[in-house]
């Protein structure tokens, strides 16, 4: 790599002021283009901060006049409808779910990812095939079969794994829940007292849960199943780390630190020939 390229990346990645760091870089190198179209993937269990980081990355790259396309799990216009319908009807069995998610990925590959790469853009994917590998394995499907299923997928240039522990995910999930409930409480004012069931469950872990009405118990069950699933997903991701050479970033640190690390690595990637 040429020395001036090093310098460029240092200017941006090394800037301690997060969010404003691109200004000097832009003035020295006004138009940056990746040598090749790039596919950048962010993976991680639920609530690891992927989506937030993808948004910041996109804004940062766009500010540098890169052409950026983002794509997220479950967003194919064709299949997202089917997935919503599938969820409202009787639940599908694991194989059918797996194939439907595969259809979503295929549709996005054909209509979003490949065209963008052909236009020589940077594509950032919020979850990729690895999410499917982890989920399907957690649901008991054959890992080799799932990998073969996704053979059509474009090979990413880099896969970031935002690492948080499953217990951290549970903690964040509970915080989110409380946030939503207190929001609801503010909106609804006082709740009606006519429901007996909720009184029995009131003393559980969340004092705010009184406004969650009869669903408090369900929430406990849902939380237990959430915890269970995140543990399974976590162990799948841990196993995949080596198999696919993930770039691991600790997700349990301030958002801006994570973003800085992502930017530093991506900057190097974009300057690679």
């Amino acid at each position: 790599m040429a020395s001036d390229q090093h310098q460029t990346s240092d200017v941006v990645a090394g800037d301690p002021v997060w969010g404003t760091g691109n200004a000097p870089a832009r003035s020295t190198v006004p138009m940056l283009h990746p040598e090749r179209p790039r596919l950048i993937v962010l993976e991680g269990i639920d609530l690891s901060g992927r989506t937030t980081q993808v948004q910041f990355l996109r804004d940062w790259l766009v500010a540098q006049r890169y052409q950026v396309t983002t794509t997220a799990w479950r967003t194919s216009p064709l299949i997202s409808d089917a997935l919503v319908r599938a969820r409202s009807g009787p639940p599908l069995h694991p194989l059918a779910y797996s194939l439907l998610y595969c259809a979503d990925h295929m549709d996005r590959t054909q209509r979003v990812i490949q065209p963008a790469l052909e236009r020589r853009e940077i594509v950032i994917a919020d979850r990729y095939t690895y999410t499917a590998f982890a989920r399907d394995a957690a649901r008991g499907l054959d890992a080799t079969w799932v990998r073969k299923l996704y053979r059509f997928a474009v090979q990413p240039d880099i896969v970031f794994y935002l690492h948080i522990s499953p217990e951290e995910a549970v903690k964040r999930r509970m915080a989110l829940q409380q946030q939503q409930e207190s929001h609801k409480e503010n909106k609804n004012g006082k709740h009606s007292k006519d429901n007996d069931k909720e009184h029995k469950q009131k003393q559980k872990s969340q004092p705010q849960a009184a406004t969650a009405q009869p669903s408090t118990k369900l929430t406990q069950e849902a939380l237990a199943s959430f915890r269970n699933f995140e543990h399974k997903m976590y162990s799948e991701y841990q196993q995949m780390q080596k198999e696919f050479g993930f770039t691991v970033i600790e997700g349990n640190q301030p958002i801006e630190h994570v973003q800085t690390m992502l930017r530093r690595t991506i900057m190097h990637l974009l300057l690679e020939i």
Partner: peptide, 25 residues
Amino acid sequence: ARKQGQVDPMLLSILYATDFAEVYE
């Protein structure tokens, strides 16, 4: 899908496979 234009054969096949998988399981 048809309203949105041509359906890719691979996508069509994965949708049919989804259906079969559900009958199967």
